[in-house]
């Protein structure tokens, strides 16, 4: 499990978050997910995001976080675009401006804010969890929760295989280019992908024999090398979390998710800027990604 650290998003450290038991963190992530998906006030979600960002900063994981969040940007820009012109609210919608075939709605700006903040904050919190949890501990926890050993074995193996196969892929691409294969396009597809698969399948045979010789699956409970114990802090936090969640859901229930779409009125120029910005952002990011792949 050693080389897993290299590619997983795990950032070694000793911060508060690092020291929590994975179970506690999983409950937090699930709780945040549920809460954020029922809150309809962008300001509350924004406040939650700020808290998460502070936690990320405090656990020294900001650099890794930023790189991972980049991958979300195209979808966020797309989301803003679509929501402004087709809000996730029942009609009637209040038009703010018109740009060519598109009408920009007030509810649209509102739901663009809610949905994008929702995704960013949930993703950020989940990333914080991934970045501060040693993958091995995650699998130990999965087994503690009754997930069969075979499943966590398969997930671990998958993660270990990815960099190996990626390296194979690079060798294969150069081997085929030596045979004058086109550098891109469908004609290059089978020559590139079949050797990766066929090579990996040969690996399966060897892996299978190794497992056979270790009598995989026949013995009883698997013990893990690293000891993971739930501390008093973890129990306290879990209980507090559950009480807090009950309170939050009661508030959400009586306030109907703090829906303020009718009170918040956005100026038309803001809607236009947001709309045009999402288009520029979408293409900008895609071009940026395409460049990065080329290099």
């Amino acid at each position: 499990m050693n080389n897993m650290q290299l590619i997983a998003n795990y950032v070694p450290g000793k911060s508060f978050f690092h020291r929590l038991h994975p179970s506690t963190k999983i409950i937090w992530v699930l709780g945040a997910l549920l809460t954020v998906f029922f809150i309809k006030d962008p300001l509350i979600i924004f406040a939650f995001l700020v808290v998460v960002l502070v936690l990320i900063k405090a656990s020294n994981t900001f650099a890794t976080y930023r790189a991972s969040l980049m991958l979300l940007l195209p979808i966020i820009f797309g989301l803003i675009f679509f929501q402004i012109v087709a809000p996730a609210f029942p009609k009637p919608w209040t038009p703010l401006a018109r740009l060519g075939p598109f009408v920009l709605y007030n509810e649209g700006v509102y739901s663009a804010l809610v949905l994008s903040l929702r995704i960013i904050s949930v993703a950020s919190f989940a990333l914080l969890f991934i970045m501060t949890t040693y993958p091995g501990d995650l699998f130990t926890t999965m087994r503690m929760w009754g997930v069969p050993y075979e499943i966590s074995f398969m997930v671990t193996t998958t993660i270990q295989l990815i960099p190996i196969l990626q390296k194979e892929m690079n060798i294969i691409l150069s081997a085929q280019r030596s045979r004058a294969m086109q550098a891109s396009g469908f004609s290059a597809l089978l020559p590139s992908i079949i050797p990766v698969f066929a090579g990996a399948i040969e690996r399966v045979r060897q892996m299978s024999m190794t497992l056979e010789s270790r009598a995989f699956g026949s013995s009883g409970k698997k013990t893990s090398i690293r000891q993971l114990k739930m501390g008093t802090l973890d129990y306290t936090l879990i209980i507090l979390t559950i009480i807090a969640l009950i309170g939050i859901f009661y508030l959400l229930w009586i306030n109907q998710g703090f829906d303020r779409s009718q009170q918040m009125i956005f100026p038309a120029p803001a809607a236009i800027i947001l709309f045009l910005g999402s288009i520029i952002g979408f293409f900008g990011i895609l071009v940026l990604f395409a460049r990065r792949i080329k290099n």
Partner: peptide, 17 residues
Amino acid sequence: TTYIVALIPVAAALNIV
């Protein structure tokens, strides 16, 4: 079974690759 347990992660990794 061991072959299946080995084949599935390979397939999963190949999805990603």
